[in-house]
Computed example of a mutant assay.
Amino acid sequence: MKNLLTDIAGVRVGHAEDAKVASGTTAIIFDSPAVAAIDVRGGGPGTREDALLDLANTVERVDAIALSGGSAFGLDTGGGVQAWLAEQGRGHRVREALIPIVPGAILFDLLNGGDKAWGRFSPYRDLGYAAAAAAGTDFAIGSVGAGLGATTATFKGGLGSASAVTPDGVKVAAIVAVNAVGSVTVGNGPWFWAAPFEVDGEYGGRGLPDKFTDDMLRMRIKGGPAASARENTTIGAVVTDAVLTKPQAKRLAMIAHTGFARAIYPVHAPTDGDVLYAAATCEKPIEPLVGLTELGTVAANVVARAIARGVYCATALPFGGAQPAWRDRFGG
C-alpha cells in the first residue's frame, strides 16, 4: 500500500501543470470502465458530464475522471483526457463509434498570481491530454496537478491522496484537490481538523490542541467579507475495488463526503463548489447494507486524510504575496 489512489488495482493517475499560469490538471484513468456516481455539496460547482451520472440515466461506467484548476476554463481538461483515451481505442461503444466517457470537476485558481492571459484558447485541453498520457501508479501529492494553484483560508492548498483496507479486505482510496473557502487547520495553529483519523504521522502527527478557544472556532474564510461564489471548491474522487451498482456508488459518495466535514471548517459553503465522485472497479463483492455502510465509514476517513495530506505536502507559489504553505510555518 502506497497510501495513494493507485492502491486500487487498475487505477492510474497523471498530472500536468503550467508553472507560468500557476494551474494544472489531474487525470484519473481506469484501465477498465468503472461504475461511477457524483455527489455535489458546494454552492458553486463546476462540472462536466454530471447529468450522465444521474441515477436515472443510462450510462453506468466511465473511462476516466478529470480534475482541474482554471474555473470554467478548466472544463476543457476533460476534452484532452477524452482525446488521449480515443487514441487508445477506449470508450463507450455505439455501433461503430467509440465515445470515451470522462466526467470532470474544476476549482477556482484564477487569482493566485499566475499569468492567466493565455490568449484565445486556455491551456487546459492540452494539459488534460498530457496528464492522461503521464498517468501511472506512482504520482506526487502537494502543489501538483489540479492542486498546483489551490489555496485555503489559512495555508496553501494542494492535492492529497490516502488509502485504507476495510476489515473485510475491501480497498478504498481517495484523491482530493483542496481549494476550500474554509480552513483545513485549527485556527492559525499546526493542528489539522482531520487529526483523529491520521495514520502513521502522515500529516505531521500534531494531534489536536489540548483545548479549543473561541478564536480557534472563529470562522476563517478566504477573502473574508469579500468572498464570492465560485472562487473556491474542493474536488476529488473516492475509488474502491468493491462490486457496486450505480446507486450504491452514489451512496458511497454521499457517505464519503462526510470526510470533507471532518477536515475543512467551514465546509459546503455558498462560496464553495465541493464535488466528490465515487467509482468502483467491481472486483470484490460486499454485503449491500452493513458492508456498504462500513465501506462508507472508512471512505470518509480516507477522504479526510487525503485533504489534510494535500495541505501538509503543499508548497507556496513563487510569486510575491503568495499564500504561505503549512510547512513554511511549521516545518516538514
Rank of each mutant, 00 (worst) to 15 (best):
110 L>I: 11
4 L>C: 05
272 D>H: 09
233 T>P: 09
137 T>M: 01
106 I>T: 14
289 L>A: 14
136 G>W: 09
49 E>G: 00
223 G>Q: 02
95 R>Y: 10
140 A>T: 05
36 A>M: 09
119 G>V: 06
243 V>L: 12
167 P>G: 06
51 A>K: 08
298 V>E: 00
235 I>G: 02
124 Y>V: 09
231 E>D: 13
175 I>H: 09
190 P>K: 14
150 A>R: 09
61 R>S: 14
232 N>H: 09
225 P>G: 06
273 G>R: 02
20 K>E: 14
90 R>H: 11
8 I>P: 06
270 P>K: 10
284 K>I: 15
94 V>K: 12
217 L>S: 07
72 A>K: 04
81 V>N: 04
288 P>A: 12
239 V>M: 10
26 T>S: 12
157 G>C: 12
45 P>W: 13
211 K>C: 11
162 A>H: 09
21 V>S: 04
105 A>F: 11
272 D>R: 06
250 K>E: 14
225 P>A: 15
79 G>H: 12
36 A>G: 05
163 S>I: 07
151 T>A: 14
167 P>T: 06
26 T>Q: 07
89 G>Q: 09
16 A>Q: 04
68 S>W: 11
110 L>K: 00
325 A>V: 09
173 A>G: 10
193 W>S: 03
144 V>I: 15
134 A>G: 05
113 G>M: 03
263 A>E: 07
46 G>T: 00
143 S>N: 07
70 G>A: 06
210 D>M: 03
41 R>W: 06
177 A>D: 11
